[in-house]
Structures are given as C-alpha cells and as structure tokens.
Design a protein around this nucleic acid. Structure first.
Length: 114
DNA sequence: AACGTGACTGCCC
DNA sequence: CGGGCAGCCACGT
C-alpha cells in the first residue's frame, strides 16, 4: 500500500471527507501544500482504485473536479456508481450532472497530523 | 536515468 | 464561448 508517502497523505484527507459532502482535487492538493499538483491527487485515487475497491472503503466518490463534475466515474465498477453513492448520501446535482458545490463543497480544514 | 501518462487547473488565443 | 497549451507532481516502464 505504501507505494509513496504522498499517496497515503491523499488517502488520509479523502478519508476525512464527511458523508454528503465532496471536495475537489485542487483543494486536496492545496491542503497538502502542492496546489499545482491536482493531477497527482487524481493519480493517487487511481492507484487506490486499482489496488482496492471495497475493503479500503475510501470514499473516493466524494472527490470531484473544480466544477463538481464526476471526472473519475469511469474508474468505478460502473460509470453510475459514483453518482449513485453521492445521491444516496443526499448530494444534489445540477442539470449538467455536476455536484452542487455551493451546497456540498467541503474543504479539508483539519491539518494533517505529522 | 529519461520519457510518457494521468480521476487537474489556470491562462491565453 | 470554445479549444488549446503549459505547469506541477508522482509513478510505471
């Protein structure tokens, strides 16, 4: 699992996202002090998705892009899983199929214990 | 060690 | 308004 310290840090933040809330790759990156590396964040989730999908129980479905679009839905078992899980948590979507960030955006406040 | 790839973002044309 | 280019970070080959 420890393929890199960075991954663990990302997973730790994702694990803190409360149900019914979502955050963006950019916010996670910013929280980690590397605002310009939102890509690496997505890469970390891609890695965890390939590694494990259930047991880890990492709420990767609560991570969306800056517009609230479910850019990573194709990485789930089925393209609908991501939206289904969010809706199940009471997350509202816009006509465009994007998460209503104005209502559900969550920004990591808790500092990474280190 | 170098190159290519990616669940991103922002700026420029 | 839409599409394209560049920047940044980490990882696999």
């Amino acid at each position: 699992m420890e393929r890199g310290h960075f991954f663990s840090r990302v997973w730790d933040v994702v694990a803190q996202i409360p149900p019914g809330r979502v955050t963006t790759y950019g916010h996670i990156a910013e929280h980690l002090g590397v605002k310009r590396s939102a890509r690496a964040v997505g890469y970390a989730l891609n890695a965890v998705a390939r590694s494990d999908d259930g047991p880890l129980a990492l709420p990767c479905h609560r991570v969306v892009n800056r517009f609230g679009a479910l850019t990573g839905r194709l990485h789930f078992e089925t393209p609908d899983v991501m939206e289904e899980r969010l809706r199940a948590e009471g997350v509202a979507f816009t006509e465009d199929g994007c998460v209503d960030l104005a209502r559900h955006l969550w920004i990591p406040e808790a500092p990474v214990e280190s």
